[in-house]
């Protein structure tokens, strides 16, 4: 993490380490906006089907791979340009939309009438299929994602010995992620298919009785969520350019947690949850002065040249936050309490 060179900033001494603190904020928002993009897919599919699509994180992985092949084919590293970058996104998003629709059609639709647990277990199966099928097809070794945009700093600021560096890549990630979220918001709230999605989410049978082709709407929902995940996969690869077939496991899990944190089925909730997960993860690493001594005493962390390495605990603490939030608000931050149907 960027803050490891200097003293870890503490919120209380934040003014002294203002630059460092802003640096953590930047990284947190970058990670969080990608988690948010993935979380939207979980929450939308849950909304229409009440299904946790555990294969969603792997669709994100496929998005990164499709982007990798598209970027290589278009030789973006040699000839970076805006339209090539856009093409990489559109190709990967389109292919992932097809993958998502295919998964829904062949893995989940035949189980529409089956108990929910059956579909859930199938989702886990599809996830394994994509992960290990991916190893078979792409190879298990990490691949280096080609440059799509030339990374350079847009903000460089030193303040009392700590640094804030924001790169154009980070800006692109946040801008693209939020542009896509606004697009999604527009689709859901202001288009006919969006209205049908909301109707299916609220009452699938009643929607069918209105003349809504519910299968088509569910299929469209998978396409939309998968395309967003693909965008997330490419965005993260611009930032951490090493991709492998298991790269979707942890971000997928965190995005799922983000969706639950925000209130699953709730679209703004997924965005909020994603951002909170990204920020929590980043700040946990940077700001827990009290943690390293405890971990060392417990023999759970070792001191190295760069200080005490606690980054492995960041995920554990992020999940701890989830548990605490859910203890207080079981339906998530923005989730509504399920009313008893009368």
């Amino acid at each position: 993490m960027a803050g490891s060179k200097c003293q870890p900033a503490n919120l209380l001494t934040g003014l002294v380490f203002l630059a460092d603190w802003l640096q953590q904020l930047t990284i947190g928002i970058v990670l969080g906006s990608v988690y948010a993009l993935i979380a939207l897919g979980y929450t939308m599919v849950y909304g229409v089907l009440r299904l946790i699509n555990f294969a969603h994180g792997d669709v994100y992985m496929l998005g990164a791979f499709f982007g990798y092949f598209a970027a290589n084919a278009l030789r973006t590293a040699e000839h970076p340009s805006l339209w090539r970058a856009a093409a990489v996104f559109l190709i990967a998003m389109g292919l992932c939309a097809l993958v998502g629709m295919t998964i829904e059609r062949f893995a989940y639709r035949p189980l529409r009438q089956a108990p929910r647990l059956t579909a859930l277990i199938t989702a886990i199966g599809v996830s394994f299929l994509l992960e290990y099928g991916g190893q078979l097809v792409f190879g298990a070794d990490p691949k280096s994602f080609p440059d799509v945009i030339e990374t350079k700093p847009v903000v460089e600021w030193e303040y009392k010995g700590s640094f804030l560096i924001i790169t154009n890549t980070q800006v692109v990630i946040v801008v693209v992620a939020f542009a896509l979220m606004l697009l999604l918001r527009f689709i859901v709230l202001h288009t006919k298919i969006g209205k049908a999605m909301r109707a299916v989410a609220q009452d699938r049978e009643a929607a069918a009785l209105m003349g809504v082709n519910t299968d088509a709407v569910i299929s469209f929902t998978f396409a939309l969520g998968s395309a967003l995940a693909a965008a997330g996969g490419i965005l993260i690869s611009l930032y951490q350019p090493s991709i492998d077939p298991l790269m979707g496991v942890l971000p997928g899990l965190k995005a799922f947690v983000a969706a639950v944190l925000g209130g699953i089925g709730n679209i703004p909730g997924a965005v909020l949850g994603g951002l909170l997960m990204g920020l929590a993860e980043t700040f946990v690493i940077a700001n827990t002065l009290w943690l390293p001594p405890i971990l060392m005493r417990l023999g759970m962390a070792k001191e190295s040249a760069s200080g005490v390495d606690i980054s492995n605990y960041a995920d554990a603490i992020a999940f701890l936050i989830l548990i605490v939030v859910l203890l207080v608000r079981p339906s998530g931050l923005l989730g509504s309490v399920q009313r008893e149907k009368v």
Partner: peptide
């Protein structure tokens, strides 16, 4: 079975 979270107008549109 009206769509509870949608407005009356949206229900009619549907």
């Amino acid at each position: 079975r009206v769509f509870p979270q949608m407005s009356v107008g949206e229900n009619l549109d549907l």
